[in-house]
Amino acid sequence: MADEQSPDSELSDDQKKEIAKWFLINAPAGEIQYVAKDVMAILKDDDIYHSAALEAFPEYNKSHMICLELPDRSGDVIVSSFGEIDKNKYLDPRTAQVATIDHVKQVCTEVRPAADEELPSPYIEEFRFALDAEVMKYVNDTYPKGVCSVYCANGKDVEGPGFDFEVVVVISAARNSPQNFCNGSWRSVWNIEFKDEEQSLVVRGKMQVGAHYFEEGNVQLDSQHECKESTLFQSPEDSATTITNIICRHETEYLASLEVSYLNLPDTTFKDLRRKLPVTRTLFPWHNTRQISLARDITKELGIGN
């Protein structure tokens, strides 16, 4: 067909840009800057690279929920869709400030006080503040390099009882050690619906773990888990304690399940990677590997010792 490209045809600039974006967006946790250098070297076209980077970096930063230090060192801001005010401005609810982000450089360039319309009502802030304090204690005790934030997702203008509202807890932790050929990240998002009429809370969680090992190889883990639980609508302090306990329990159970999976890798995943029948057409005796002796077989084949 006339519109089909031949194998030797040159890619268009738009095609190159989309391929570059794909590699940037799918970079492992903490490695987009390394991928960016390689993409730039392969493209050899600054205009195409910068066009791709301007679209890919914001998406990557939000999906990985990266944490950046505020310029005045008053705290950190998590780059997430829940705190996004516009394409490069993000709310930090804890300090009631709005940070301006340079997505490509992954730095916070300036900060300003949040406007009243960007913050929740005093009634909602009571619940948000209490939950933020409890979750922060939990994260500090659980994740060595973890950060968290609590946002009002719906109903921030609610002035008192009688209406539903929703808050979101975001937890992000990264451990990057490229000198040891490994990087990893933890991301969890907890949506909490406060249902006033039913006097109940609905907690929905999504946890995601990513890890990349690349010493003499390339092994990646990308695991996700979702859960849901309900509890009673209580005072701000009691609700905060209950919600944090729910988060702690589910995250602990998920981490424990991952550890069990690691222990079972040799007997499950790695075994499945092997041939069902080797070249000898004989099943490998996984139940008694000691009966296989490479040295004995070689000696027999070569006639050594006869």
Rank of each mutant, 00 (worst) to 15 (best):
Val147Asn: 15
Ala41Cys: 02
Arg281Tyr: 10
Ser185Asn: 09
Asp8Ala: 11
Glu59Ile: 15
Tyr151Ser: 00
Gly75Pro: 02
Val98Ser: 06
Ile304Arg: 02
His250Lys: 12
Pro28Thr: 13
Pro236Lys: 03
Pro7Cys: 05
Ile246Cys: 08
Gln33Leu: 14
Tyr262Asn: 10
Arg187Phe: 06
Ala295Glu: 15
Phe82Glu: 09
Phe233Ser: 01
Val39Tyr: 03
Glu4Gln: 10
Glu259Gly: 12
Gln106Arg: 12
Pro120Gly: 01
Ile243Thr: 07
Thr269Leu: 15
Leu131Thr: 11
Val135Lys: 01
Gly75Tyr: 02
Ala20Pro: 02
Tyr49Ile: 03
Ser188Gln: 06
Phe194Leu: 02
Gln291Asp: 08
Asp8His: 14
Lys137Pro: 08
Arg204Gly: 12
Met65Trp: 08
Ala96Trp: 04
Glu197His: 10
Ser149Glu: 07
Thr242Asn: 13
His250Phe: 14
Leu255Ser: 15
Lys145Leu: 12
Gln15Ile: 10
Ala41Leu: 09
Arg249Ile: 09
Pro236Gln: 03
Met40Thr: 13
Tyr49Asp: 05
Thr242Ser: 14
Val77Asp: 00
Thr241Gln: 11
Glu125Asn: 09
Ile19Tyr: 05
Leu283Gln: 12
Phe181Lys: 01
Tyr262Arg: 15
Glu118Leu: 01
Asn140Thr: 08
Phe165Asp: 01
Glu4Ser: 11
Phe194Ile: 01
Ser223Phe: 11
Asp132Met: 09
Pro28Val: 09
Arg275Asp: 11
Asn88Glu: 10
Gln15Asn: 09
Ser6Thr: 10
Glu125Arg: 13
Glu301Arg: 15
Ala2Gly: 11
Tyr123Met: 07
Ala29Gln: 07
Thr282Trp: 03
Pro161Gly: 00
Thr280Gly: 02
His103Asn: 02
Val79Tyr: 01
Asp45Gln: 06
Arg204Trp: 07
Lys87Pro: 05
Thr252Glu: 10
Pro71Gly: 04
